[in-house]
Write a protein that binds this DNA or RNA. Sequence first.
DNA 1: CGTGGATTTGAGAGAAATCAAATCATGTGG
DNA 2: CCACATGATTTGATTTCTCTCAAATCCACG
Lengths: 244, 244
Amino acid sequence: MSRPLLDSLLTKLKAASDLDSDDLRAIASLPIRTRHLDPHEFIVKEGDRTHECCLIADGFAFRSKATWQGQTQILSLHVPGEIPDLHSLHLELMDHDLKALSRCTLGFIPHAAIKSLNANRPRVAAALWRETLVDASIFREWMFNIGSRVGVTRMAHLLAELNRRLEVIGMAKNGVFDLPITQVELGECLGLTGVHVNRVLKQLRAEGLVRTSRSVFELLDIDLMEERGEFDPDYLHLPAFALS
Amino acid sequence: MSRPLLDSLLTKLKAASDLDSDDLRAIASLPIRTRHLDPHEFIVKEGDRTHECCLIADGFAFRSKATWQGQTQILSLHVPGEIPDLHSLHLELMDHDLKALSRCTLGFIPHAAIKSLNANRPRVAAALWRETLVDASIFREWMFNIGSRVGVTRMAHLLAELNRRLEVIGMAKNGVFDLPITQVELGECLGLTGVHVNRVLKQLRAEGLVRTSRSVFELLDIDLMEERGEFDPDYLHLPAFALS
DNA sequence: CGTGGATTTGAGAGAAATCAAATCATGTGG
DNA sequence: CCACATGATTTGATTTCTCTCAAATCCACG
């Protein structure tokens, strides 16, 4: 009766919000349909009206929008334990795309099930609401990052953020994490071109802050990298125990 | 027993979510403390832990962050009927500043009152949750705007958005609205310098799209301005009747 | 009528984009 | 196991967009 699909979500919710064992049990018994996706497969498209939310059990996903000329902006990166389209519960229309970044395993949960859970268990509703608020906080920080920092700093900030977020779920250790993302995609996160991302990474490498090989990133001095990116983890709203 | 302070909020919630008259009555009887603020007065500071939310009854407010070097990014502009710090209900720590843009009238509502309302009335909770989701959607669009469009387009997009948002609350008519914001502040919204904002506005004026005088903006051709800014209102998630 | 904030304009510097080509994998099929 | 095709990374040269610095003008207000 264990449901590994939901484990990462349960751990996270329990750490951030106060839920009793009935609440947790109720979440754990939500109906879930599992699906495997290939890199860059669409999960949901802009303009869609969905009737379920997707929980990332394994792998990475991202949200994005494209300009009329086809330039794309990545709005967020999502890691296991997150529900990147939780907002669809209350917003009818998708205002952006959601795609798999890497090969990944997703659990789809019907809106109806979550809604009835919310109606009966205000604490669960509050915990899920909180997740969407953390999301929004990260959007704000990304906007801030893109709007007011130069390329090198921007990249340092992103790497520092990813390191922290992956660390709390055990997917980064000592500044080392594996994220299958191309330089062009990094550019789409940061409002930079792929070419410029390359130069910016070269700069950070030259400063001795990072090593990259294939899809693994190795922050050689986490504190320095965070400093370089003017990174302050407050906006991630991590539970106290997860802070250095 | 009429409470004009809450009218704009009630109108908005009723239009977007389905609430019965008991729900509306319950909201209408929330305890509120009224306060008047001068332009640029702080409402809440980054790092604060608050115990109430603020409803804008009159005037404008904005949220912002500043880099370590003092560059500031405006994250959002808020108009009457909005609750710019509703997120504080579930996120302990403010991760940004909230300030008055113009002289304004605010209603402060204790967290405790909203929380008990949410616990007893799931529909009200959902309606408020939805408000924070629309907020997040606007953050995404701003990030997109800043990250992937050039200055002129970016400005056109912002003007088109403000026109729509003000129109639905009756504060813009035929493309004309009064917003007491400086060019430097517009720049802080868009990730541009004040000087560049001036040039970009000059360009839009030259294209015959806008006239400005003092704090009033006059969009001379709304459709063309929206086109110029690649503006599509979907992300505002306005109720159907508010769409052109 | 003077003062200070906001807007406007100019000139030059800097950051990032664009265009183009070379190099470096990685994975496939012979 | 090598040859080749494909996609990603790297580098160079040039252009474009935006910033910075500076000064002038405009305007509301006391």
